[in-house]
Write a protein that binds this DNA or RNA. Structure first.
Length: 235
DNA sequence: TTTTGATCATGA
DNA sequence: TCATGATCAAAA
């Protein structure tokens, strides 16, 4: 738990951009983090057994344990947390806080994203406030159950980060609108976000402007961008 | 090794 | 049956 959290709460309360809802959220978050502390430093298997999550070799095992732990630590009900709380994600990281994978958001429809404005976009709503729970694994192939929970990181994009994300989101939106959905920049071409398949399989398609289709896709946070967020929080 | 398209377990 | 949160694994 960040020792300066109480100070951060005070400092942020002075910022005019913060309204009552933000303050209420921070109070809930402070309680959540304190109650989550007992899980930090323990393995996924250990915590999972403790809170009744059955072991699995499936892709979502570590995430199911982390999400259950977050819900258990939260002072507000699961429903309320999901609707008003931060977007919560688990991310397996190495010893440099570099995630082994990028972080995904729900799939979008190409023909809907081109009608969105950044300020009321689905992505902005998801990214405005996030709780990222790092789970340390010595190597990518370290079994999920052996990975260790770290202190959750509450993140709100800084003005600079938000500006970069808006620039890239707008670039993607405009490219799709210009019938260039088949040649979008890759993660290695961007700083913060990229677009990537997010479907059942390659036959799971979504119509694109211009008459074609692409595998259903979503926005993802770049690995290096998430690493910067986690590193900034550990300073 | 890194990048990027493909896939999968789970829950509603 | 499908959307979601994540990892897998073929390419580069």
């Amino acid at each position: 738990l960040k020792p300066s959290f109480t100070y951060a709460l005070y400092r942020d309360s002075l910022d005019s951009r913060w309204n009552n809802r933000n303050l209420a959220e921070l109070a809930n978050l402070d309680r959540l983090l304190r109650r989550f502390a007992p899980f930090v430093g323990r393995s996924i298997n250990d915590v999972g057994a403790d809170i009744g999550v059955r072991p699995s070799t499936g892709k979502g095992y570590a995430a199911s344990v982390v999400h259950a732990a977050v819900q258990m630590a939260s002072p507000i009900p699961k429903r309320e947390l999901a609707s008003t709380g931060p977007t919560t994600r688990m991310s397996r990281v190495d010893d440099e806080l570099l995630p082994y994978e990028a972080l995904s958001f729900p799939a979008f429809r190409h023909n809907e994203i081109i009608t969105e404005d950044w300020q009321d976009s689905a992505l902005l709503a998801l990214i405005e406030h996030m709780l990222i729970v790092p789970v340390y694994g010595r190597t990518r192939q370290t079994p999920q159950g052996a990975c260790v929970l770290q202190t959750p990181v509450y993140w709100r994009p800084t003005a600079d980060e938000l500006g970069e994300i808006e620039r890239e989101w707008t670039m993607f939106r405009d490219a799709i609108a210009s019938s260039k959905a088949d040649r979008l920049p890759a993660e290695s071409d961007t700083v913060a976000i990229h677009i990537r398949p997010h479907a059942r399989d390659s036959t799971d398609r979504d119509a694109t402007p211009g008459g074609g289709s692409q595998t259903k896709r979503s926005f993802w946070l770049n690995k290096r961008f998430v690493q910067r967020i986690l590193r900034a929080a550990s300073r």
